[in-house]
Amino acid sequence: MTHAVPAAVQLSRQGTLSALRRLPEYLTIWVPLLLSAGHLVSFALWTIWVSFTPSTLLPVSGWVGLRNYTSVMATRNWTIAFDNLLLFGSGFVLLSLLIGLVLAILLDQRIRGENVLRSIFLYPMAVSFVVTGTVWSWLLNPGLGIQKLVNGLGWTAFRFDWLIDRDMAIWTIVIAAVWQSSGFAMALFLAGLRSVDADLVKAAQIDGAGPIRLYRRVILPTLWPITVTVVVIQLQFAITTFDLVRALTGGGPGIATLLPALVVYDFMFQRGLLARGAAAAVLMLLTLLAVLLPYAAWQYAQRRKAARA
């Protein structure tokens, strides 16, 4: 017991000392995390704040309520961009899901050269959207690309001019986007297929299921959590698409292929309407949240279910 008292005193001194000694640790931990978290929170809040001010070329304080939102939504640019987003988003997501799934199932048949094929389907992911957009703008240019080639081969009536067709131009963006990221869907689906319990497949085969029934009834149902993930990621990409359109159509012909991200950029940096640009950005964020929040809730529920099981 006699030891205890001096020991305790020494301890408290050691306590403050060690806290000081650990200061560099705390700094190493907190500085990067605070930089990251701080910029995210403050930037998001600041942009939301600006969207409620009358700012034009420079941010100014003041409160205009939802005026920026109503005027953004009333512009033709925005309505066209949002309609395009619906078309582009659904077309792109459905096509890349379908192609990704088909590719994954085909690659899952233990075929030769799987690695090479997989690399081929995925390489577009390594290329920038600017490059993708530029290349496809050449290929889809009727006076330069596929149409010219086919015409030159003798079929002079062939027309493939979506790039300059106001109604069809949005689909050129779908084509390029699907080319770029269906391989990603394939990779995720393939990983999912590979993780299907081999005993499950054996059991189904013993039950007498043929290949089609095997996929339809046994294997594909296990894939649907992955499908949801793929859809959400692709939608997230679709909602924020910018570079691809800039490089492929520049938003044209006219404003036929505008997407929300281009409208935001136009408001902020070409027209100098900061508040409206901010409002458009917030609208983008809300669109994104409309996708992400249900997804987060779904994931939470899945996890709870898994924890209870």
């Binding site: 995390l33 910029h39 930037f43 942009t47 935001v264 950029y265 900061l274 458009a280 964020l285 994104l288």
Partner: peptide, 27 residues
Amino acid sequence: WRFPGDRWIYGIVTLGLFLPQQMRLLP
């Protein structure tokens, strides 16, 4: 390591995966 606020700060940092660039352009 466990330190006070670790979950929170990490949660906020990962939100950066979702926050579109357009929300950060002006700041």
